Amino acid sequence: MNILVAPDKFRGSLEAEEVCDAVTDGVKRAYPDAKVTAIPLADGGEGTSKILTQVTDGWEVPVTVMDPLNRQINAIYGLSGNHEVAFIEMAAASGLRLLKQGERNPLRTSTFGTGQLIVDALDRGVKKIVLGIGGSATTDGGIGMAEALGYSFKDNDGNMLFPDGQALGKINTIDIRNVDQRLGSVSIIVACDVTNPLFGPDGAAVVYGPQKGADPEMVMTLDAGLANLAQVATRTFGRDVSLVPGAGAAGGLGAGCMWFLNAVLKEGINIVMEQCNIASLVADADLVITGEGKVDEQTLAGKVVKGLAGLCKSHNVPLAVVCGTLQITPEEAQAAGMTYAVSVLNRPMDLNAAQCEAFKLVSDATFQLMRLFFFSRGAV
């Protein structure tokens, strides 16, 4: 019996590798002879670079870059074992987790450090860059990243602008004369798990600005600034990408990557599954077990579970899901392609207790689902 274990992390409790260990423990307790293949997954957000680096036998590269508020920090990205692919997370240089609560201000934050990571990868001669853009502290439309790569942004008087959120509304021209020419010979794929446009009521500033520290007035300023960037960038590059799904991801970095890097946006989970060769592993499995901290409506919109559900359905392989919190109905689970979905919580408990006992809870829940699965097939 071949069991494929392919979970995301349980945020705040277990990393994806630890979830793999806990699920494998539960499988082996229930059915010691089962053959288990464990592959940690991610949806393009935090942890994606580490996982992709590991599956390509690569290593982590340390770099000194600027954080969202232009302070020097140490960041890392991954390099594949064959030196050809860089795995970068913008959150490593421009993430919200790098700022204290009182420092959050998307008018002042910049993606310049993300651009520095890309420059370092170009210096190492990579042929491809996979860029995850989750967890940003910024709403600068990617102009900070672009400046690190040789772009410059000027106002009506020809003055250079510092590339942060408050500069967006002042941009009149984009100077492309000093852009790093190596960008033309590198394939750049952006892992993106949201579908927001660049600006407007569903755009980057309105939807995500408040969680980055923006008050209502800031949101209006940033939204108008992103609309201005769209106008200038469309004039400069000859194409308007502001309505492309994902353009508003990471404070407009999605659109910025398309304009400034000629990048392609893809669902993060599809990128990870492709790199990990998950399709062939699913085809050979008798059961796939996945999971994440919370299964809810966002899960159904493009997380790890949804990505695996599609593959399992196409190969007629049952999919079991273990999670900390289950917030969808049985009908929604079935419609999404989940054969079995269960919360690991076995009694009322607070968050701290659940996090402390996470490994055992996941293992026990897996044990129970395995006994049920094998009993239904007459194996136990």
Rank of each mutant, 00 (worst) to 15 (best):
N2C: 07
V5E: 11
A6V: 05
E17F: 11
D21F: 09
T24N: 10
V27H: 02
V27Y: 05
R29S: 11
Y31I: 12
P32L: 02
D43R: 03
E46Q: 09
T48D: 04
S49Q: 14
K50E: 15
I51W: 04
V55A: 01
G58Y: 08
W59S: 15
V61K: 00
M66T: 15
D67C: 03
N70A: 13
I76E: 13
Y77D: 00
G78P: 10
S80V: 04
N82V: 08
E89F: 01
S94Y: 02
S94D: 06
G95W: 09
Q101W: 11
G115A: 07
Q116P: 03
L117G: 12
A121C: 10
L122R: 01
D123S: 06
R124K: 15
I133P: 01
G135N: 09
T138E: 00
I143H: 05
G144D: 02
F153M: 10
D164V: 13
Q166T: 04
Q166E: 14
A167F: 08
K170Y: 13
K170C: 02
I171A: 10
I174V: 15
R177F: 11
V179Q: 01
R182E: 07
V186P: 00
S187F: 03
P197D: 11
L198R: 11
F199D: 12
F199Q: 10
G203C: 08
V206F: 04
V207E: 01
P210C: 13
G213N: 02
E217H: 09
V219R: 05
R235G: 15
A250S: 12
G254L: 10
G254R: 10
G256R: 01
W259F: 04
E274K: 14
Q275E: 14
A285T: 08
L287M: 09
K294E: 01
T299W: 11
L300A: 08
A301W: 10
G302Y: 02
A309K: 05
A309Y: 05
A320F: 15
T325Q: 15
P330H: 10
Q334W: 05
N346M: 15
P348D: 03
L351P: 00
N352W: 05
A358R: 04
K360A: 12
L361H: 13
L361R: 10
L361E: 03
S363E: 13
S363C: 00
D364N: 10
A365M: 08
Q368M: 13
R371M: 14
L372D: 15
F374S: 09
R377I: 04
R377S: 07
R377T: 09
